[in-house]
Each structure stands twice: as C-alpha cells, then as structure tokens.
C-alpha cells in the first residue's frame, strides 16, 4: 500500500519535473534576449531539478542513495544562482545591454 503510494507520488513528481524542464528549454529558445533567457534556465535549475530529484528520493527509500540525492540537489541549488549571477555580471560588464520593455529610469518600479 505504502509502496504503491510512493510509486504514484514519484511518478507525479517525475512527470511534473520533466514538464518543467521542457518548459525551461522552450523558454531558452523563445525568449528574446540573453537576460530573459537566464530566467528560463533558472526554472530548469531550481523547480525542474528539485521535482525530479524529489521523485527519485521517493524511489530510493532510506539508504545512502537518498543521502547522495539530497547532497547533489543541495549542491545544485547552492551553485546555480552563483553561476547565473557570474554569467549575468560578466555579460553586463562586457557591455551587453538588457533589452527592456520601454524606456525606464531604473527607479520606476511603480511606472
């Protein structure tokens, strides 16, 4: 009974994670400029990877495999923002301008 529930749960998580990953890939191709594409990559890096790894954790049961899955997931969650920020900062400093919706005075959150 519990085994069946775990199977169904990991099924749902894996399919949802796969869908989110594909969504990130579609965003990577669809979005208009570099800075918006970072957001698409972020979806795959955080929610997609998180869902897939949680789905695998339900399959692993209480074992060393579970510990390894947790470690890899934590490592990815720690490094992905650092890598994104490094790429974005390097792009900004090399003179790549974000393509914005319209003219904006960099304080106009309420505009």
């Amino acid at each position: 009974m519990i085994a069946l529930a775990l199977d169904v749960g990991s099924w749902i998580l894996l399919v949802a994670g796969s869908f989110i990953c594909v969504t990130g890939g579609v965003g990577m191709l669809r979005f208009p400029d570099f800075f918006t594409r970072i957001h698409a990559a972020g979806v795959t890096d955080t929610l997609g990877a998180g869902l897939i790894f949680t789905g695998l954790m339900l399959q692993a049961g209480l074992s060393l495999v579970l510990a390894k899955l947790v470690m890899i997931l934590l490592f990815m969650l720690f490094t992905s923002p650092t890598a994104s920020h490094a790429v974005a900062k390097a792009a900004l400093h090399s003179g790549l301008e974000p393509q914005l919706d319209d003219v904006d005075d960099r304080s106009g959150v309420d505009s």
């Binding site: 570099f34 594409r37 990559a41 795959t44 790894f53 994104s84 390097a90 792009a91």
Partner: peptide, 19 residues
C-alpha cells in the same frame, strides 16, 4: 554569454540525466 548559459543548462541536465 548565451552560449555559456546554454552550456551551463546542458550540464545541469546532464546531472539529471545521469541520475
């Protein structure tokens, strides 16, 4: 930078694929 970002995403998915 698009290429670097794409390769980074490719790497993330490699990790998922191997797991």
């Amino acid at each position: 930078y698009d290429r670097i970002l794409a390769v980074n995403m490719f790497g993330t998915n490699t990790v998922l694929l191997i797991a």
